[in-house]
Amino acid sequence: MNHDSYPDNYIRSILNGVKSIAMVGASPVNVRPSYFAFKYLAQRGYDMIPVNPGHVGKDLLGKPFVASLRDIGRPVDMIDIFRNSSHIMPVVDEALTLDPLPKVIWMQLGARDDAAAEKAEAAGIKVVMNRCPKIEYGRLSSEISWMGVNSRTLSSKRAPAPTQGMRLSLNRMSVGGGDTAASDRAAKNKSEQS
């Protein structure tokens, strides 16, 4: 998998396919990006599990925190890692001990660990790096267009007005395979510099 840019269909199939998401590094502080994403994905109907050893005993929007992936005690479809790139590998190693394995490992905006990705992919797990599932869901459903964001999708169909808890259709026509030339160039420039 080329991790500099992803075809929309790849992201779409992941977000359409998974039902439960364990968020590693979920924060109860309501200005942290992980809190935003957790809340949004819960509101769009995903079964969310907050994973953070520092908050065991508390809950996040009604969902109890667990200390580690092993403590979830039931299968999860996707692991969303809200940690810096340097903390990714141990989480992936732990995910690989789960039975059944998760279908998807997703690393947040700004997080990328190619070696960890390779390991997960070798075990048949789909990997997304340096993206936010909230932004991608909002983009593919065009809900994010309220913020003037280029969804890079088109549709001549009438969509239902979104309500709380509703999953939205992500099956709009994609404009250009899910990446903009400019953002790709920026990602490339950055990885060439480092």
Binding site: P7, D8, N9, R12, S142, S145, N150, S151, L154, S155, S156, K157, R158, A159, N171, R172, M173, S174, V175, G176, G177, G178
Partner: peptide, 18 residues
């Protein structure tokens, strides 16, 4: 779902609107 790139004129009419 096809991932093909619409041309400029198509975007000028459709992008952002549904």
């Amino acid at each position: 779902m096809s991932d093909r790139l619409p041309g400029f004129s198509t975007l000028a009419v459709h992008a952002g609107a549904q």
